[in-house]
Amino acid sequence: MAEGLTIGQAASFAGVTIKTVRHYHRLGLVAEPERDSSGYRRYRSGELYRLVQVRTLAAAGVPLAEIGDLLDSDPATFAATLDDVHRRLTERIEDLTARRDRLHRLDHGDRALLPDRACAVLDRLDAFGFSPGYVAAQREAMVLARALIPELFDNFLTQLEHLLDDPETVELTKRGWDARSWDPDDPRIEELASALADKLLTNRGLLALPTGFRDQSDAVSRYALVNHHREDQSPSIARLTALVEANLRAAGIAVPHQ
Score class of each variant (00 low, 15 high):
Gly133Met: 07
Pro184Thr: 01
Arg230Asn: 13
Ala60Tyr: 07
Thr56Arg: 12
Arg188Phe: 02
Asp183Tyr: 14
Ser194Asp: 15
Gln138Val: 00
Val220Leu: 11
Leu70Ala: 12
Val21Asp: 09
Asp74Ile: 02
Arg111Met: 10
Ala242Lys: 03
Val52Glu: 11
Ala80Pro: 06
Ala137Ser: 06
Ala242Trp: 05
Arg22Gln: 04
Leu114Glu: 04
Ala254Gln: 06
Tyr40Val: 03
Gly129Thr: 05
Phe78Gly: 06
Val21Cys: 07
Ala179Asp: 11
Tyr49Phe: 03
Glu151Thr: 06
Glu3Cys: 05
Arg55Trp: 12
Arg180Trp: 15
Leu29Phe: 03
Val135Leu: 10
Ala112His: 03
Tyr223His: 06
Leu113Thr: 15
Glu245Ser: 01
Ala112Ser: 03
Asp95Leu: 14
Ala10Cys: 00
Asp83Gln: 14
Asp183Ser: 15
Ala59Val: 07
Asp198Val: 03
Arg180Met: 07
Ala208Asp: 12
Arg102Pro: 05
Ala193Gly: 15
Val170Pro: 06
Leu144Asp: 11
Arg35Thr: 08
Glu231Thr: 10
Pro115Ala: 08
Arg26Asp: 14
Asp215Thr: 14
Glu168Cys: 09
Leu70Met: 14
Pro210Tyr: 01
Pro63Arg: 04
Val54Met: 02
Leu82Ser: 00
Gln9His: 05
Asp74Gln: 04
His104Ala: 04
Ser37Cys: 00
Ala59Tyr: 09
Asp74Pro: 08
Phe78Lys: 07
Asp185Glu: 02
Leu160Trp: 08
Ile149Tyr: 11
Ala80Lys: 10
Ser221Ala: 12
Phe153Ser: 02
Gln53Ala: 15
Arg26Val: 12
Leu209Ile: 10
Leu196Ser: 07
Arg230Ala: 15
Tyr49Ala: 12
Ala242His: 12
Leu114Pro: 12
Asp215Asn: 14
Asp198Thr: 13
